[in-house]
Computed example of a mutant assay.
Amino acid sequence: MIYLCRHGQTEWNREGRLQGRTESDLTALGRLQAAAMADLLFDLVAREPAATWTLVASPLRRARMTAEAIGRRLGLPLAFDERLLEIDVGEWSGRLRDEVRGENSHLAGDDAWGFHAPGGETYEGMMARIADWLADQAPEPERRLIVVSHGVAGRLLRGAYASLSREETLAQDVPQDALYRLSAGQIDRLDCEPIEEPAC
């Protein structure tokens, strides 16, 4: 079983910027989302000894901060794996998403538009590293993983797990207030308790 989480909201998420491999800190809402994921996971795994679970995350700061909140709540050490990194968006990193899309109208309607960034990562290359990570994990039903990654990386991990087509993989949601359970060939979305955005 894998419980897959996306990091909480970041400053650049809020501004609509493409992050890729660039660092951006969690917002106050993002920290609350991380805590809510930690609470939900605690409820889900409390019936099993903590030692049976492994917590692993992308090394990018936003994923690390989210995973650290989960680790504190569950009493788990945290490991990192670079194969869980977010897509590299090359020269588009840090740019406003709407601005990039406006300049590249020929990519309108293409769910894979982010993979066209100059100097960025291809779908095939990213899927290969995500699938490589998945292949290295213990088989089901022995697998007991809590994974903290990113929007695009999470889509591809779910796609690799369920053998989804490219189109199905890229059409998946990427919530920051829910997590996914990957078990017995099924993918289930589990929503956190609703959170109100803190006042500035």
Score class of each variant (00 low, 15 high):
59 P>M: 07
59 P>S: 07
60 L>Y: 08
61 R>D: 09
61 R>E: 11
62 R>A: 05
62 R>D: 06
62 R>W: 05
63 A>P: 04
63 A>N: 07
66 T>N: 05
71 G>Q: 08
72 R>T: 11
76 L>D: 01
77 P>G: 13
78 L>K: 02
78 L>I: 11
79 A>K: 07
79 A>E: 13
81 D>P: 08
82 E>Y: 00
83 R>Q: 12
84 L>Y: 05
84 L>D: 02
84 L>Q: 05
85 L>A: 13
85 L>I: 11
87 I>V: 14
91 E>A: 15
92 W>Y: 11
93 S>H: 08
93 S>A: 15
95 R>L: 14
99 E>W: 11
100 V>I: 15
101 R>Q: 15
106 H>W: 12
107 L>N: 04
107 L>E: 02
109 G>F: 06
109 G>E: 03
110 D>A: 07
112 A>K: 07
115 F>Q: 03
118 P>K: 02
119 G>R: 07
120 G>W: 08
124 E>I: 08
127 M>L: 15
128 A>F: 05
129 R>P: 03
130 I>D: 01
133 W>P: 05
134 L>A: 13
137 Q>H: 05
138 A>P: 15
138 A>V: 04
138 A>H: 08
140 E>S: 12
140 E>L: 12
141 P>R: 06
143 R>Y: 06
145 L>I: 01
147 V>T: 11
148 V>G: 06
149 S>A: 15
150 H>R: 11
151 G>C: 04
153 A>Q: 06
155 R>N: 10
155 R>Y: 03
157 L>P: 02
158 R>K: 02
158 R>M: 12
158 R>E: 04
159 G>I: 02
160 A>L: 03
162 A>H: 05
163 S>Q: 14
163 S>K: 14
164 L>Q: 12
165 S>F: 06
166 R>I: 01
167 E>M: 09
167 E>C: 01
169 T>H: 08
170 L>I: 09
175 P>M: 08
175 P>C: 08
177 D>C: 03
183 S>W: 12
185 G>P: 02
185 G>D: 04
189 R>P: 00
